[in-house]
Simulated assay, not measured.
Amino acid sequence: MAHNMRFNFDKSAFGRHESFGLRYGWLTKGFNAFQEDPSVFENEDATVILGVGKNMVKSIKNWLFSANLISREVNGICATDIGKLLFGKKGYDHYLENEGTIWLLHWLLATNAESSTVFYWFFNLFHRTEFKNDDILKSLEQFVESDLKANYSHNTLKQDIQILLRMYSHTRESGNNEHLKELDCPLSSLQLIAYYKDAKSYQSKIEKRDHIPLGIFGYALLDVFSAMNFKEIPLEKLIYNQDGYATIGSIFRLSENGFIYHVEKLMAAMPNVFEYSESSGLRQLYLLDEKISKYDLLKWHFDQ
């Protein structure tokens, strides 16, 4: 079962990472061990099997849930379809060697409101493009208190923010000379958040981002069409967060021009799948091929 891309204010999760951000190799290692033995994370030998400490075992399990590679079903915890396609025995990219896999993992994290709430909140609901640590923490605390009506400690929320920023940000030194830190997390390579060391501030800019792989952009589009169960969606709903659904433009930090650029490229590469129309001030995207699935787009991406 896919995760629900619409925010459920009654279901949220914070502080389950054991203070460890996602690291290279963890998803592959954790998913393979889970497929061998679904009870591996409760196993007394889990630290030996996974080669990490006890808290890291819990963290790996958390990241598998957060990235929607495993999920809780009626009959227990199961591997998801996307988990099997990426990291199964015949998976597309066991070792995260394809940039598209990193973009896809970002999409999976930022759309999974129930299991990775802080990622969903930041990429869908926090709209400031420049901020400091205190700004983002205060905003998250206000959201939790007023919208979720939940009670999470200041330290828990602070740690979640620190983990998110550490996982995504790369450092820019003064003089605008870019210096990429050696980070364990693959998501920093997407450059969705920049840290300006001298100003001690962050930027998450809205840009054209024409390097986002087309197949992954198409996967995200079909994910939204499926979640909304529509055959036509106004462009604004795909670019800006509305109705509580995860939003492509917000998650990929895409400008309107960038979004339309990707749509047009996708229409040229896959005729008769999508159609874009603009008339009387109404901009709509249509799904013409009802048989195509997001997994077809994934196969198309990895087969290229």
Rank of each mutant, 00 (worst) to 15 (best):
H3K: 12
R16G: 08
H17T: 03
H17R: 08
F20C: 13
R23I: 01
G25T: 03
G25C: 02
W26G: 02
K29V: 07
F34V: 07
S39M: 09
S39V: 05
F41Y: 02
E42M: 13
E44S: 05
E44I: 02
D45G: 02
V48G: 09
G53M: 01
M56Y: 03
M56C: 02
K58F: 01
K61L: 03
L64I: 02
A67M: 10
N68I: 06
I70F: 02
S71L: 11
R72H: 10
E73F: 09
A79Y: 05
T80N: 10
D81C: 03
L86D: 04
F87S: 00
K89Y: 10
K90P: 08
G91C: 12
Y92R: 04
D93A: 04
E97Q: 14
E97G: 13
W103Y: 15
L104Y: 02
H106S: 04
L108P: 07
A110R: 04
T111N: 04
T111W: 00
S116L: 04
W121M: 01
W121T: 00
F122C: 07
F123P: 03
F123V: 00
H127E: 14
E130G: 02
E130S: 04
F131H: 06
F131I: 11
N133M: 14
D135R: 14
D135H: 13
D135A: 11
L140K: 05
L140Y: 13
F143P: 01
V144G: 04
V144C: 06
N151F: 12
N151Q: 15
Y152I: 01
Y152K: 01
H154T: 06
H154I: 08
N155S: 08
K158M: 12
I161P: 02
I163H: 11
M167N: 15
M167C: 15
R172I: 15
E173G: 09
L180C: 09
L183D: 14
D184N: 07
P186L: 14
L187C: 14
L187P: 06
S189D: 15
L190H: 06
L190N: 13
Q191A: 12
L192K: 08
I193G: 13
A194H: 10
K197Y: 08
K205N: 13
K205W: 08
K205C: 07
K205P: 09
K208Y: 09
R209S: 06
Y219C: 00
L222E: 08
V224R: 06
S226D: 11
A227K: 01
A227D: 01
N229S: 05
N229E: 07
F230A: 11
F230E: 13
F230T: 09
I233K: 06
P234Q: 12
L235Q: 14
K237H: 13
L238H: 00
G244C: 09
Y245R: 00
I248C: 01
I248N: 01
G249C: 03
S250Q: 12
R253P: 12
E256A: 06
E256D: 11
N257K: 11
Y261S: 03
Y261T: 00
H262S: 01
L266R: 07
M267P: 09
V273D: 05
V273T: 08
S277W: 06
S277R: 11
E278L: 08
S280A: 07
S280E: 09
L282D: 10
L282M: 12
L282F: 10
R283Y: 11
Q284F: 09
L285E: 12
Y286V: 07
L288E: 05
K291C: 05
K294I: 01
D296G: 04
W300E: 06
F302P: 03
D303N: 13
Q304E: 12
Q304G: 13
